[in-house]
């Protein structure tokens, strides 16, 4: 563990504490006593039931969802950038998010019947949509035996537009127009539906993503050098690409189902991280995970706090705070890529 990793973890821990104790409704010390009560399995004074619900059942799952979603977007962004060897890549660029959004909107707006429960069928619809989008992109780009990065990017942008149009069509022709308001909020990316039970699927998917990518850290480094030299380094380039694409659909699908399409985290975070850690994936991946998690947590804190009692979709905040930061970074830093 390097110094920066420990630093980021400490930052993440204190960010969670700040996040769950910020807000008009519960005082800082009250929030801490609720946390203490639960983390010590009932030690200390029994907290006020309202404060208990706010801190333990609303704010904490929401903070954890922010960590999971932000972390997931961070690592998938890093992996996508290695996959296409292009610093522009993120889950959005290959059409995965748009496909996942289209799939989830089909379900959300009543076109698809709920299979078992909403908690299960929405991630499944989103995963299917994302996978469907990436399979189209993949079959276009991988036509002649190997995957062409140029065609992958171009097809990704095209399919993203197609899926975006499909989502808009679904939204406007919904059989349940009363749900449009909710869908709009969710489409812009929001963590407001977080509960302990909605955390399960994204956590599993992101954990699978993180572990698999860490296992693949060395081949990913190789891929940055280009297909041929990666091959000569012994990297199974084509199968790694396939695995990356499936992982990206899985993680992005489950994230989109939980929180809608939150933009810019996957693009910005890996770049910010590389300017500190260098390009080695053994460092970039864990750092992107923690940095993405902390970034989204703070963005959500802003989204919650900016209007008293009310909230904004966090996707708006990530763009508003993230993009200027990214531009400054772009102007200042001068790291090599690949």
């Amino acid at each position: 563990m390097n110094r920066w990793a420990i630093g980021l973890l400490i930052l993440a821990f204190f960010s969670v504490i700040i996040s769950v104790s910020t807000g008009d409704e519960v005082s800082f010390s009250e929030a801490l006593s609720v946390l203490w009560h639960h983390l010590t399995f009932g030690y200390g004074t029994v907290p006020d039931p309202i404060a208990d619900r706010i801190v333990w059942r609303l704010r904490l799952p929401r903070a954890l969802l922010a960590l999971i979603v932000g972390g997931g977007l961070g690592i998938i962004g890093a992996a996508m950038q290695a996959l296409v060897r292009n610093p522009l890549a993120e889950p959005y660029i290959l059409g995965i998010s748009s496909g996942a959004t289209a799939g989830a909107s089909l379900f959300y707006l009543g076109f698809l019947p709920p299979l078992i429960s909403k908690a299960v069928s929405m991630p499944v619809a989103a995963f299917a949509g994302g996978l469907c989008a990436i399979l189209i992109v993949y079959s276009v780009a991988g036509g002649r035996g190997h995957l062409s990065v140029t065609r992958l990017l171009l097809a990704g942008v095209a399919v993203a537009s197609l899926m975006g149009a499909l989502s808009s069509f679904i939204t406007l022709s919904s059989p349940e127009p009363d749900k449009l308001r909710s869908v709009l909020f969710w489409l812009l990316g929001s963590l407001h539906l977080a509960t302990w039970s909605t955390l399960i699927w994204p956590s599993i998917a992101v954990l699978i993503g993180l572990i698999s990518l860490l296992v693949l850290a060395r081949p990913l480094d190789g891929m940055l050098t280009g297909d041929e030299s990666a091959h000569s380094l012994g990297v199974q380039v084509e199968s790694i690409k396939r695995i990356l694409i499936i992982l990206a659909s899985l993680v992005t699908g489950s994230i989109v189902a939980a929180s809608g399409a939150i933009g810019f985290v996957g693009l910005i975070v890996p770049h910010a991280v590389r300017s500190v850690t260098g390009v080695t994936h053994r460092r970039v991946l864990p750092a992107s995970f923690i940095a993405g998690a902390v970034f989204l947590l703070w963005a959500d804190l802003v989204a919650r706090a900016i209007l008293p009692g009310a909230q904004l979709p966090v996707g708006i905040v990530t763009a508003l705070c993230g993009v200027p930061f990214f531009l400054i970074l772009l102007r200042r830093s001068n790291y090599g890529f690949g």
Binding site: G23, D24, E25, V26, I50, R53, I54, L58, R59, F185, H192, R304, G309, A310, Q311, L312
Partner: peptide
């Protein structure tokens, strides 16, 4: 768009 905690409080 209200937060759940606003309503609780």
């Amino acid at each position: 768009v209200l937060t759940d905690e606003f309503v609780l409080d």
